[in-house]
Every structure is written in C-alpha cells, then in structure tokens.
Write a protein that binds this DNA or RNA. Structure first.
Lengths: 216, 216
DNA sequence: CGCCGTTTTGATAAAACTCAATCATCGTGG
DNA sequence: CCACGATGATTGAGTTTTATCAAAACGGCG
C-alpha cells in the first residue's frame, strides 16, 4: 500500500517508480499517447523524455498547453472516465508509465490519502494553468519567450548547455507566436550574446539581460 | 448528510442552497471577497450576482481569469490551506455563501462521495482553463469577443436583452485586449446591426453573422 | 551527394496598442 | 431640478507588434 502514499506525498520522483501493475511503455518522438476525443481509459506518468499536451480547434489551429517531463501526470480525464480533451504527443523518445482506468479507480478506493493527494494535484495544476493564461494574455512576444527559456534552464546551473528538443514551431505553439517571430527573437538574442545555441541545446550567456526582458 | 451528495451531484443550483452552517454574505459591486496572497481560509459559492476572478503581475498588469455566477465555486486554494492565488471581486452586488476552511474539511472527512465530487470539479475547471488558454493564444480579437458575447447570451432565448454588467475594460481584461479595441469592435457591430446595446444590456440581432466571426 | 524539413531573413500587411481628445452617463450636492 | 464632476465610452491618428508570404540557407540522414 506504500505506493499510495507516494501519490499522496506528491513527490514526482517517487511517483515515477510505482512498483506495481502499471505498464511501462516506450514511445518514439512524434508518437501519440492519446488523442483528443478518444476514450480516456488510462492515466500516465512520464518516466523520461518530454511529452507535449496539445489542444486543437476544429479548423486545425492548435496550441501546446503543457510540456511534461519526468514525474508529470497526464490524462486526468481518465479520473472521470470520459474522453480525453487533449492530445499527448512524445516530443522526444520517452518512457511512460500507463495505469489503466479500472486499476486507477481500484487504487483510489483502497486508499483514503489518495484523494487528498489528487486534491493537491488539482490545486497545483490549476495554478499552473492560470499562470499560463496570465502569460498568454498579458505578456508580449519577447517576455513570453524569455520566460520560457529561463524556466526551462532554471533546474540547471547557470552557463550550462541545456537540451531544448523543441522546434521553433513548437516554441511558438506554446506561446501563441509564429515560427518566424520566435526565430527572429532568438537570432537577435544570439547576436547580442544573451544566449548561445548548438545542435539542439541552448545556453544562457547573460541571465540578467534575459530576466530584464522577461519581466517587462 | 444530504448536503454532501448535493456537492457530489455537481448540480450548481442545489449547491447554492446548502442548508447548514456556511454564512451568507452580501458584497457591493467593487468589493473584494479575497485578495491574492491572503490566507485561504474559506470556500465560497455564488448565490447571485457576478464575481470576477483576477490575477495580477507584480508590475500591476492584470487579467480576469473567470467570470463566476450563480453556482460557481470560488477559493479552492482553501482546499489545501495555503494562500489565495487570485483576487475575487464583486462585479455586481452579490450574495455569496462562505464556508470556513475548518468546516470545509470537516465536511470532506464526513463524506466519501465528496472527494469524488471534487474530482469532477477538478476535471471541469481544468477543461475550462485549457479552453481559455486555447482562446487566448489562437484566436484574434473579433473571434474572442464574439465568442464571449455568444457564450454570455447562450442561456437566453435569441433576441432577448441580456444584462452585461461589464465595462469595456473588464471585457478587455478577460480577453487580453484593450478598452479601445473592444469599443471599436462593438461600435462596428452595432453599426452593422449584429448587436444592440442599451443601458447595461446587450442583444444579439444577427446571431449567424456573429457566429461566423466567432469561428474564424 | 541530394533530399527534406527546419530555420533564417526580408518585405509587406494586418492587428492591436498608445496617446489624446471628445462625448455620454449617472449620481451628488447645491 | 439642474449643474458639476467623475467614470466610462468613443473616435482618430500614429506607432508598435506580430503575422503573412516568399525565398534562400542550413543541417541531418539515407
């Protein structure tokens, strides 16, 4: 029963290693874990790699809601047994832990703490979502992109090369900007030595300047 | 114990009438139920009127996340006993039902169904939030505003006058646009007889045309 | 080496913001 | 009851931001 308190403790690192029935699956970059509209029959946690959660309009325009990495929970539509309201697509090759809906509910029924943990997840994800709304509506291009880069690199020591396996298009789709706009901002910042790029890696060279851009 | 299944049934109309200890409070237009940063010590439901949920950046820029009306739950930060991450401000005079945090948790502990109900609320609000992100990032001005008006008037029969107690500024703040931009769109639509305005009411005169604008 | 998808760059247009001035509306107090 | 002031709405002109379209350069991979 320990695995439930793992859930409850809200520690992503441990969530990734639930030692029971869920199935570990590998996805190659570009493959989908699930699509918008499909029956929501499983909950996922990411063990390694990056998964993008997108949502599309009928006319084909789409947006990246979140970029999920190790420890993230995806497919919470399955909590209420309906259909997925988003797409989940592997950005890089990744390893994912899949917990079928019936086992999920079995699990929930067997542990009182679990619902409390889910509550915390709720509050967490709502805050994340609301912060993103704020960003999307208030900030302009450079602010958004600088914020994303700073957040992305935040877990690493300053001045290190960080993998950034996203295309310009994907960056644009998470910020509500076009490929060209992203490309121009990055080109400009490279010229001004705020950042460097190499293969699919990025390095922040002048964090103060970037923070300045990010905050207004 | 009936009041708990009221919660569980997720029927806003009944939630509004929980027959026990929560306190009914009245707020005048412009008054705040709570502010970002304050200790989250109570959950609210709206009984009448409109409450705007806003979030501000350090530099003063702010955004309206939601417009809540009868049946809405506000202040879910109180589920985890932290601080409110948003502001809640009465747009119109309103009546609100306030459930202190300790009673909320007492209530939760006493009913197994309740957590399931909260789960449904979670899924609901996440979907709402994600739809809004999509709107904010993908759609342009006229699309956003037309969508808002259509949604706002949707509960009423076509061609009826509907109260719209929001200023142009507030409309702008929910859509990520400025006062002037909103004013121009509305003026244009009035000229073209898509809508009419009167006091603080709006009427849709040509729903097809407005839907056309809303969808692309 | 050549192909394909991505990125860059430029030119132009569209969308939205800013600033500024004027106009309405409504509640208040004389 | 009317003038006043305050707040919100409108409108115009000019500017900034971002999108769009098009073409060229780059980079990895078979």
């Amino acid at each position: 029963m320990r695995h439930l308190s793992i859930f409850a403790n809200l520690q992503p690192e441990r969530l990734v290693n639930i030692p029971f029935r869920p199935i570990v699956t590998k996805y190659k970059a570009g493959e989908a874990l699930y699509f918008q509209g499909a029956t929501a029959n499983a909950l996922f946690t990411v063990r390694s790699g990056i998964v993008k959660i997108t949502k599309s309009l009928a006319d084909g325009r789409s947006h990246i809601l979140y970029l999920q990495s190790k420890g993230s929970l995806l497919g919470w539509d399955s909590f209420v047994e309906e259909t997925y309201s988003q797409n989940a697509i592997a950005v890089t090759d990744c390893e994912v832990c899949r917990l079928p809906e019936h086992e999920l509910n079995e699990l929930r029924r067997s542990d009182l703490e679990l619902d409390n943990a889910i509550l915390h997840r709720w509050v967490d994800s709502m805050r994340k979502a609301e912060n993103k709304m704020l960003e999307l509506s208030i900030k302009k291009g450079p602010e958004k992109l600088a914020t994303l880069i700073l957040d992305w690199c935040a877990p690493y020591p300053p001045g290190t090369w960080v993998d950034l396996p996203l295309t310009r298009g994907e960056l644009g789709e998470t910020l509500g900007l076009t490929v060209e706009t992203i490309s121009r901002f990055l080109a400009d910042w490279r010229k001004r030595h705020l950042i460097s790029e190499q293969h699919h890696q990025i390095r922040i060279d002048n964090i103060e300047a970037l923070e300045e851009i990010a905050r207004r």
